[in-house]
């Protein structure tokens, strides 16, 4: 028996198999749903006014592709702006929360408020203070995506292994040094999974923002509004589909890039685990 056990290839193989099945299995489900959908539309001869089949939706998708692309781009821009704002604000808030239980107790309820207040209720306030348009849409997106980043990052900063904290105390590390050299890197997987959850919320926020505080410029939100008014259901479905795909793409992108950065640069993975073989015990 050797101290240098060769478990690495095994770990690598299973993770490749897993990531392939991670993509394949959901795609299979999608194909099945589309098939049943199309079949149902054919079999019962459902009117396209009530439910267009996936074929019709794809055709509509192609027909209004220019408008879809432009809208998706604008919405993505607003969502990413909102997400960036909430990453900065959320991380700073989490720093403050991690440093004092009093601050945490005093302000956490207001962070929860961000999550629970219906956006329709804030919309007038946003419009009054920022007017209608891109800035307001990005603001709504930021409000909706802030909470997961605050909670996830705060958890990461606080849930540091007690033994590691002892180690830092043993060597007389200052609070500041402990934050920078221990808490921040240990919280990275939490920050990234917070961003991952927030990315979905930021796109929902941008679309809803376009509903309530937008100025009608192209965007998936305003496009959905127009298509639902015009009763061309296939095009409405196409727009909703693109919105979903956009959300999934951003989520997937952050997962892949985040996981890669964590693994390569920090030897960690998104679950907060250390990659590679672990010591027993």
């Amino acid at each position: 028996m050797s101290e240098r056990s060769g478990q690495f290839s095994a770990v690598g193989k299973t993770s490749v198999v897993r990531s392939v099945s991670d993509v394949l299995v959901p795609l299979l489900v999608l194909a099945l749903v589309l098939l049943v959908w199309q079949g149902a539309v054919w079999w019962w001869r459902i009117s396209p006014v009530l439910l267009p089949g996936p074929g019709a939706v794809l055709t509509a998708c192609w027909k209004i592709r220019a408008s879809l692309l432009e809208s998706a781009f604008r919405t993505a821009l607003a969502a990413l702006t909102g997400l960036s704002i909430s990453i900065v604000l959320g991380t700073l808030t989490a720093f403050a929360f991690s440093q004092s239980a009093l601050v945490r107790r005093a302000f956490y309820p207001y962070a929860v408020l961000l999550q629970t207040v219906p956006i329709i209720a804030i919309a007038p306030i946003v419009i009054v203070s920022l007017g209608r348009g891109f800035v307001s849409v990005a603001t709504v997106s930021a409000i909706l995506s802030l909470f997961p980043i605050i909670t996830s990052t705060t958890t990461g900063l606080l849930q540091v292994d007690a033994t590691l904290l002892d180690l830092f105390r043993l060597y007389g590390a200052s609070r500041w040094k402990t934050l920078l050299s221990l808490r921040v890197p240990a919280a990275l997987p939490y920050l990234i999974s917070g961003i991952r959850i927030a990315s979905g919320s930021s796109i929902v926020g941008a679309i809803v923002g376009e509903f309530f505080v937008g100025d009608g410029t192209p965007g998936l939100g305003s496009l959905i509004q127009r298509k639902s008014a015009s009763l061309v259901l296939s095009e409405l479905y196409a727009t909703v589909g693109v919105a979903t795909v956009l959300g999934t793409l951003v989520f997937g992108l952050i997962t892949v890039v985040g996981e890669r950065v964590l693994r390569r640069r920090f030897g960690m993975s998104l679950g907060g685990r250390i990659s590679g073989p672990q010591s027993g015990g």
Partner: peptide, 15 residues
């Protein structure tokens, strides 16, 4: 000066 060895290796995984 005392060196301390914990029950777990207590290493920083990112280093």
């Amino acid at each position: 000066r005392a060196g301390f060895v914990f029950q777990q290796p207590a290493l920083l995984p990112w280093r």
